[in-house]
Measured scan of single mutants.
Amino acid sequence: MDEEYDVIVLGTGLTECILSGIMSVNGKKVLHMDRNPYYGGESSSITPLEELYKRFQLLEGPPESMGRGRDWNVDLIPKFLMANGQLVKMLLYTEVTRYLDFKVVEGSFVYKGGKIYKVPSTETEALASNLMGMFEKRRFRKFLVFVANFDENDPKTFEGVDPQTTSMRDVYRKFDLGQDVIDFTGHALALYRTDDYLDQPCLETVNRIKLYSESLARYGKSPYLYPLYGLGELPQGFARLSAIYGGTYMLNKPVDDIIMENGKVVGVKSEGEVARCKQLICDPSYIPDRVRKAGQVIRIICILSHPIKNTNDANSCQIIIPQNQVNRKSDIYVCMISYAHNVAAQGKYIAIASTTVETTDPEKEVEPALELLEPIDQKFVAISDLYEPIDDGCESQVFCSCSYDATTHFETTCNDIKDIYKRMAGTAFDFENMKRKQNDVFGEAEQ
Results as ranks from 00 to 15, higher is better:
2 D>L: 01
4 E>D: 09
6 D>P: 00
6 D>R: 01
14 L>F: 03
15 T>K: 06
16 E>Y: 01
18 I>N: 01
20 S>E: 14
25 V>S: 05
26 N>L: 05
27 G>R: 06
28 K>N: 07
28 K>G: 09
29 K>D: 13
31 L>A: 09
33 M>K: 09
34 D>I: 13
35 R>C: 08
37 P>Y: 11
38 Y>H: 11
40 G>V: 02
40 G>M: 01
42 E>V: 09
47 T>E: 10
60 E>D: 10
60 E>G: 11
61 G>A: 08
63 P>T: 01
65 S>A: 10
68 R>G: 15
77 I>V: 11
77 I>L: 07
78 P>F: 13
81 L>R: 03
88 V>F: 13
89 K>S: 01
94 T>K: 00
94 T>P: 03
101 D>S: 07
108 S>V: 09
109 F>G: 04
109 F>C: 05
111 Y>R: 04
111 Y>L: 13
112 K>W: 13
112 K>Y: 05
117 Y>K: 14
118 K>N: 04
119 V>A: 10
122 T>P: 05
123 E>V: 13
124 T>I: 13
133 G>V: 07
137 K>L: 03
139 R>S: 00
141 R>I: 09
141 R>L: 10
142 K>I: 04
142 K>P: 00
144 L>H: 12
149 N>W: 14
149 N>K: 00
160 G>Y: 01
160 G>K: 12
160 G>S: 07
161 V>G: 04
163 P>S: 06
163 P>F: 11
164 Q>L: 10
165 T>Y: 14
169 R>G: 10
170 D>G: 10
171 V>E: 14
173 R>Q: 10
176 D>A: 14
177 L>M: 00
179 Q>E: 05
179 Q>K: 00
181 V>G: 04
182 I>F: 11
188 A>N: 15
189 L>T: 12
189 L>W: 15
190 A>S: 08
197 Y>H: 07
199 D>C: 15
199 D>N: 09
201 P>H: 00
202 C>F: 04
203 L>R: 13
206 V>D: 03
206 V>I: 08
207 N>P: 04
207 N>S: 11
211 L>A: 05
211 L>F: 08
212 Y>H: 10
219 Y>C: 09
228 L>V: 11
230 G>I: 15
230 G>N: 15
230 G>R: 03
234 L>I: 12
240 R>A: 03
240 R>N: 02
243 A>S: 04
250 M>A: 14
252 N>S: 10
255 V>E: 04
256 D>I: 14
257 D>S: 15
260 M>V: 09
262 N>T: 03
263 G>C: 07
264 K>N: 07
265 V>F: 04
267 G>M: 02
269 K>L: 08
270 S>E: 05
273 E>Q: 09
273 E>N: 12
275 A>H: 14
278 K>T: 09
280 L>M: 00
281 I>D: 15
283 D>K: 15
284 P>Q: 15
287 I>F: 03
288 P>T: 00
288 P>C: 06
289 D>W: 13
290 R>N: 12
290 R>I: 10
291 V>A: 10
292 R>M: 02
292 R>W: 08
292 R>C: 11
293 K>S: 14
294 A>P: 02
296 Q>H: 07
299 R>L: 02
299 R>H: 05
303 I>F: 07
304 L>R: 02
305 S>R: 01
310 N>L: 14
312 N>Q: 07
313 D>Y: 05
314 A>R: 03
315 N>C: 04
316 S>P: 03
326 V>L: 13
327 N>T: 06
329 K>Q: 05
334 V>F: 03
334 V>G: 02
334 V>R: 01
337 I>S: 13
344 A>P: 03
344 A>E: 00
347 G>Q: 12
347 G>D: 07
349 Y>V: 04
352 I>K: 11
353 A>V: 11
355 T>I: 04
360 T>K: 00
361 D>A: 11
362 P>L: 04
362 P>A: 09
365 E>I: 03
366 V>E: 00
369 A>S: 05
371 E>V: 02
374 E>D: 05
376 I>S: 01
381 V>A: 08
388 E>D: 00
390 I>A: 15
394 C>G: 13
395 E>Q: 13
401 S>L: 03
402 C>L: 00
404 Y>S: 10
405 D>A: 05
407 T>A: 09
407 T>H: 15
407 T>S: 13
412 T>S: 01
412 T>E: 15
415 N>T: 09
415 N>C: 14
416 D>G: 11
421 Y>H: 10
422 K>Q: 13
426 G>C: 07
427 T>R: 06
427 T>Q: 01
428 A>P: 14
429 F>W: 10
432 E>S: 12
433 N>G: 12
442 F>N: 14
442 F>L: 09
444 E>D: 10
444 E>N: 00
445 A>G: 12
